[in-house]
Design a protein around this nucleic acid. Structure first.
Lengths: 173, 173
DNA sequence: CGATTATTTCAGAAGTTTCTGAAATATTAG
DNA sequence: CTAATATTTCAGAAACTTCTGAAATAATCG
């Protein structure tokens, strides 16, 4: 696929950001390319366009499929796999946030629950420190419960709520 | 400082998560230790407790101060710097989210604004691709504007709103 | 069934980040 | 001012991640 300067800059930037978002540059670049591409692309074409090894494309596409950011499609008369990215920005955001929650929040919740339970039996840890751990647990649980509820709100309602901004507070006692 | 098994597990876990959150293990471990510690600690004590090099503690503390997660204090009769972590969970969350926004969102907004402007003059990039870039820009702008407003809502109101969960939608349409 | 094409696996090369320890610098106490 | 203590800097070692390219495996065509 031919890249115009605008597309190139977008892809390179997304690649750099990928590193900060916790994926490799290749993964992020491939995602950027598929996000822009109007048609599905096959692995070979991705490798050529981005000038990265074919094997790297293979592994990176697997990772993007795990994240549910990229889907396999097939094109009539071509036995190669073709790939498309999720194009809806709202879904994209949800997938990214969900993924981060799973990787960064959920394991901590598991640990904090264990530690809180253990703290009840433990006599050596100072009460103040135990309290800090249980308070963090309950804070994180409140946040994740809120997120679970918000996730289920239909997109148009969510958009309306967002446009309201800080005006939502009008409805609070 | 003497670490009980509960404290150890908390610190080790926070260290692992730190990697996923975009800091080094040492930085995250030091933060965890200071977060739990009832009194301010000096650098030497941190190095001993966590068994890491004194120089590493120095650099990591600087990073934590940049993030505004850790503050310097002084203790009467002791000329060493002592350090405390922000203990309020709500502020902690805000600092973390703010930091990520600055590192991960803001640079992308800058780029997307540039590319959108450039797209207007560019004839080579397909219209569909240009549209995707401007749509992403406006999506991200809506989100960040929302966040700027929410940030200014006082904490108790925010807590009340969160407890409301998906019930906020009652006030829509 | 071979031949051809497509995809995946994986060892090690290349690149990057993190950490240490020694030396340099800064600060304070006497 | 000097000695003692505290802190920072930084070169290179260690650890880790990412990427490549060759070989293995899988899928489909005629």
């Amino acid at each position: 696929m031919e890249l115009t300067p605008i597309m190139q800059r977008y892809i390179l930037h997304w690649g750099e950001m990928g590193a900060r978002w916790g994926t490799s540059r290749s993964v992020a670049q491939i995602h950027a390319l598929l996000y822009l591409a109007p048609q599905p692309l096959h692995a070979e074409e991705i490798a050529e366009t981005l000038e990265i090894a074919r094997s790297n494309v293979s592994v990176s596409l697997k990772e993007l499929q795990n994240w549910e950011l990229v889907q396999v499609t097939h094109v009539l008369g071509d036995r190669r796999d073709h790939f498309t990215a999720l194009k809806d920005n709202w879904s994209l955001l949800m997938v990214l946030v969900e993924g981060r929650k799973k990787r960064e929040i959920d394991p901590t919740l598991v640990l904090l629950r264990e530690l809180s339970a253990e703290a009840a039996r433990d006599t050596r840890t100072p009460a103040e420190i135990k309290a800090r751990i249980t308070a963090l647990l309950s804070f994180m649980e409140t946040l994740t419960n809120w997120f679970e509820q918000v996730k289920r709100i239909p997109k148009p309602t969510l958009v309306a709520l967002m446009k309201l901004g800080s005006k939502v507070t009008r409805f609070i006692g």
